[in-house]
Design a protein around this nucleic acid. Sequence first.
DNA 1: TCATTCAGGACCAAGCCAGTCCTGTTTTGG
DNA 2: CCAAAACAGGACTGGCTTGGTCCTGAATGA
Lengths: 166, 166
Amino acid sequence: MLKLSKLTDYAVVVLVRLGDDFALQTSGGIAAATGVPEPTVAKVLKIMTTAGLVCSQRGARGGYRLAKPLSAIPVADVITAIDGPIALTACVEHSPAICDSSALCPVKGRWDRVNSAILDALSGISLADMRPPERDALSVVPMTEASAMPSYHPAGASVSTTAFVE
Amino acid sequence: MLKLSKLTDYAVVVLVRLGDDFALQTSGGIAAATGVPEPTVAKVLKIMTTAGLVCSQRGARGGYRLAKPLSAIPVADVITAIDGPIALTACVEHSPAICDSSALCPVKGRWDRVNSAILDALSGISLADMRPPERDALSVVPMTEASAMPSYHPAGASVSTTAFVE
DNA sequence: TCATTCAGGACCAAGCCAGTCCTGTTTTGG
DNA sequence: CCAAAACAGGACTGGCTTGGTCCTGAATGA
Ligand code: FES
Ligand code: FES
């Protein structure tokens, strides 16, 4: 299954939202603005902080801020931060897993080319390219309450309408 | 997790093996030659047949044969045959899943570019590129018995040495 | 001092994938 | 005509991964 984890999708949404203005934003505020459940936003932002993509300010009036402009963050970095190194198969350079039968395997080392092709493709697209041109409608959402706003669910399926009850 | 299913890895191994000669080869023979468990080989080949990548001949003295040369089979086709259409997220063209909140989603339609970049990369590499230059050592393996040969396990981990006991 | 906010885990349930097996159907060969 | 060989197609199950939640602790500002 060549697909991204749902967390990665969330991360892009959150980061793009962070890029809308450079003021400190709390995880709760971002959750309200994007419709992503607050615990999930917090989890994503923690990972992003560890990866160095965002800066955090602790304590009261704290929050998160982008560490670099959106145009300087390739999509590959976000994926790597959440999913770990991009390794299509177990037998690819920089893969966490090791391969036993590398002496016998007929396709030994041959996936590397495929892997780097994908890596190049993902490194050439930045988060700025993911931002939609019309960013007015979303920025005006008040960060206090967004109860009536439908939540954002990338996976589709059945929308549990009580995703962010508070 | 941006990684391929293990079946896809097997499929490439099996198809490359099929490309070594154009005679009919039984699933059992391929299993013996590659070290992949026989039921798995059969499963992979059935999928490949449905996808039209290999031709099958039923009955006694039957077997499988490549439908087209290795150089005419891009890696993307193998992945699509096993994993379904390449769709990084749920909100990509040709994705089987549907997205509810496409009206609100801030990155609506923005994954398409990433997806096609990957698709292009995978379409530009054929199975012939996956075949190692030295194909002597593998072709001389007799198809009758390969009991002493270590099995091929892409995932690494613990090698159950009794993979193909018979 | 206290409320606020992030840090960093542990934790559980659901979904998915790998691998196996079983029952047909088709063809060859005696 | 019969039996063996080999593919077709599905059902089934165990194990792993992931998504999502929660809890406790540390830092900061009022
Ligand atoms: S999740 Fe469907 S358009 Fe973004
Ligand atoms: S599975 Fe490790 S080299 Fe191919």
